[in-house]
């Protein structure tokens, strides 16, 4: 009897392996934990997009829950995302933009054409802040709490559903 049970061993092994592989089918490899959640927003010193003489640093993100959105004129998905960002601004969310690897002129044109939901935009032509944020493609958004700590990282497009189902609940969660 013991011998018979031993014969089932390959089948058990196969089922375990199959279970692993089956689970792998439903994993989205683009979705992964951000290394920056629960870390302070990285230090930076960048000029404002609309005013080269105004230098901004991380103290900008103190005192209020802020959604930092990394965008660029060259990024088609960012254009599709703008209506959602405008809606978030309408609903009272404070937004700060990072104009990532762009030229000043193109960045301004973009805002003129698609609307400007941002309180202020950081101009990051070299992508240095983007690099410190671990941004590997725009758009990406970071929710920063009142103490300047990153609490949520949204990689990619914020869909209209994401506004009400993901972003607004996260904002509420960190406002207290």
């Amino acid at each position: 009897m013991k011998r018979r049970l031993l014969l089932l061993l390959p089948l058990v092994g196969f089922l375990v392996l199959g279970g692993f592989l089956y689970q792998g089918l439903s994993i989205n490899p683009a979705e992964r934990d951000s290394a920056l959640v629960a870390k302070p927003f990285p230090a930076f010193a960048l000029s404002a997009l609309d005013d080269p003489g105004r230098t901004l640093d991380a103290s900008l993100l103190q005192g209020e829950v802020t959604l930092v959105n990394v965008w660029g004129e060259w990024c088609p998905t960012c254009k599709q995302e703008m209506p959602q960002l405008l809606e978030l601004a309408d609903r009272g969310v404070r937004l700060v933009g990072v104009d990532y690897k762009d030229s000043r002129e193109k960045g301004r044109q973009f805002l003129a054409e698609f609307g400007n939901p941002f309180e202020v935009n950081l101009f990051d032509p070299e992508g240095s802040l983007g690099f410190d944020l671990g941004v590997y493609g725009a758009p990406e958004s970071f929710l920063v709490d009142a103490d300047g700590v990153i609490r949520y990282h949204h990689t990619g497009y914020i869909s209209p559903e994401d506004v009400t189902e993901v972003i607004l609940p996260e904002v509420e969660k960190w406002r207290d």
């Binding site: 992964r32 934990d33 290394a35 410190d132 671990g134 590997y136």
Partner: peptide, 8 residues
């Protein structure tokens, strides 16, 4: 690199 982009 890991501090910015994670273990990935």
């Amino acid at each position: 690199m890991v501090r910015r982009f994670g273990d990935y």
